[in-house]
Design a binder for these strands. Structure first.
Length: 545
DNA sequence: GTAGGGTTAG
């Protein structure tokens, strides 16, 4: 039962006097189930079954009767443990399951697999799953979903393939899980296969499956396909709309996102808090400051929604990204003390860096470092701000501070698919058998870009920790290597698609614009947050990262 | 009457 529902029911309960005949009857029955059932029947007939006091007493006695739990009891309790993420309690219940002889009940087993997955104990979940004699489709779904939700999208897909090999029929939940895994990996091919499978089998695309398809196509770089799915759905709820709006936002198509937002309102649906985050983000990345401001104001005025931290962050981002640093700062000043959380300042810092406001940037970064000294992102930002102001002494200082505190930047990598195989490159990577050729090709490519006007930006390299990394870092960032490899291995005219785990640096962004010109290729990169479509020297993000 | 699935973002 949902918490709200539960509360509603509780409110309906009225009080009854402890001295009443019903209460006395309960006391006489005591912890004996048969007698309690009789009294309960009487309570229902007499209309006093809404009394909180009577029901409490009834339940207390019923529980004290020592009735042994059934498979129904266990599944419910295990599910509750998973939702509350109470690992210890769940493990205890698991022991009870075994003792009570429900260890091989399919329902209980699936619930346990989900429980361990949600507790991030995938090893135990998998062991349980492997031990099951007859695995229902739900059991497969539990395990596939477990992998996907814990970020192991590849394992999820491996298991899905195993399921097909064993002729287990996937259902629409299976597809939802697999599509989520495809979204994580940017696996267009499998994603499209699943889509075809759904279409050719005439599987009904309900709101959940539709949302998953929209997400998959958006995150795999094909927004127009996402839109086709959206248009083909005969039932849409606010989540479907939000997914489509965010798909547009992710690709920098701010006006389409806004168009959809207006349509959503026009058709009588109510946008929710999540919708507004997606809308504000879409505006921010398309420079639609006026529209964003309006949307933010309408949250409270038209929908009675209270803006939260995420909306404040989005507003600072919207204003700051567009260059209105003072307004962004004033917006922050207008927040309550408790609302001045690090993410708000991080958005402000991003704006300072973007628009090269040295003084404010340093001030904000130092504040962030004092409250979140363990966050590597803040050091990188501060270092970059110093670097772009030519304060190399300070850059060195920040670098040393990171080393001293043992803070390491995340390692970046990029992947590219060539002839149905995925290749992974990391910065300065030399593990590929054709390393020499790739590096030579890249060097030549960069020279051609320089002739066309490309000027490497040195600031992006400054946050690297190791000396030897610095030398290679800029030129050999993973996405550049992946692109060089892709250009070498694919035919002219083919689009290059790259997936990167971090955000792109400014230098790569500028270099790739030139690469798209000198090679006449379209290059699509999905970075940690969004898509960049490079074509003829410009990027779809319009430099609004 | 029990188990599995969807939306934001930095």
């Amino acid at each position: 039962m949902e918490a709200e529902e539960f509360k509603d029911q509780q409110l309906q309960l009225s009080e009854a006097s402890p001295k009443s005949a019903e209460y006395q009857a309960l006391l006489r029955a005591g912890p004996r189930l048969r007698l309690l059932q009789q009294v309960h029947a009487h309570l229902v007939v007499s209309g006093s079954h809404r009394s909180k006091a009577l029901l409490t007493k009834l339940l207390t006695f019923a529980c004290a009767a020592g009735i042994s739990p059934s498979s129904y009891t266990f599944t419910s309790v295990i599910k509750a443990c998973a939702e509350l993420s109470v690992l210890r309690v769940g493990r205890g219940i698991h022991s009870h399951v075994l003792v009570s002889g429900y260890g091989s009940n399919a329902f209980v087993q699936s619930a346990l697999v989900t429980f361990y997955s949600k507790s991030s104990d995938l090893g135990v979940a998998r062991k349980l799953f492997d031990k099951m004699q007859d695995r229902t489709v739900v059991a497969w779904n539990s395990m596939i979903s477990g992998y996907e939700q814990n970020g192991h999208a590849k394992e999820a897909i491996v298991l899905f393939n195993r399921m097909l090999e064993l002729y287990v029929n996937p259902d629409s939940t299976t597809f939802v899980c697999v599509l989520a895994a495809c979204s994580q990996l940017g696996e267009v091919r499998l994603g499209c296969w699943v889509h075809d499978c759904i279409v050719s089998n005439g599987i009904h695309v309900n709101v959940i499956l539709g949302t998953s398809l929209i997400n998959m196509f958006s995150r795999c770089g094909n927004v127009s396909k996402a839109r086709e799915v959206f248009d083909s759905m005969n039932e849409r709820n606010v989540i479907v709309w939000t997914a489509m709006i965010s798909g547009y936002g992710m690709h920098g198509h701010g006006s389409q996102a806004m168009e959809l937002f207006h349509q959503l309102k026009a058709c009588g649906s109510c946008p929710n808090n999540v919708t507004f985050v997606a809308v504000l983000s879409a505006c921010a990345h398309a420079g639609l400051v006026h529209e964003g401001r309006q949307a933010f104001a309408s949250m409270r005025q038209e929908y009675g929604l209270l803006p939260g931290v995420e909306h404040h962050v989005a507003m600072v981002d919207l204003l700051g990204r567009a260059g209105f640093l003072n307004e962004a700062y004033q917006f922050i000043k207008g927040l309550k003390h408790g609302e001045l959380v690090p993410p708000v300042w991080t958005a402000m810092l991003g704006a300072c860096k973007m628009h090269k406001n040295f003084d404010l940037g340093v001030e904000v970064a130092e504040h962030l470092l004092s409250v979140e000294p363990e966050n590597p992102g803040h050091y990188v930002m501060l270092s970059n701000i110093y670097a772009s102001a030519g304060r190399m002494d300070r850059v060195e200082l920040v670098r040393n501070m990171m080393i001293q505190r043992g803070i390491r930047k995340q390692v970046g990598y990029s992947t590219i698919d060539v002839k149905n195989k995925t290749y992974l490159f990391s910065m300065g990577d030399k593990t590929h058998p054709e390393t020499n050729e790739i590096y030579e090709y890249l060097d030549e490519l960069i020279s051609r870009c320089k002739e066309a006007g490309y000027a490497p930006e040195s600031e992006s390299v400054m946050h690297e920790l190791e000396e030897e990394e610095r030398e290679y870092a800029l030129r050999y960032h993973s996405e550049k290597l992946a692109i060089a490899f892709g250009l070498m291995k694919t035919n002219h005219g083919m689009t290059i698609r790259i997936i990167k785990n971090l955000r792109m640096c400014e230098d790569c962004h500028s270099a790739i614009k030139f690469i798209s010109v000198v090679t006449s290729r379209e290059i699509i990169i999905r970075d940690k947050l969004r898509f960049h479509h490079f074509k003829n020297g410009s990027c779809s993000c319009m430099d609004f990262w």
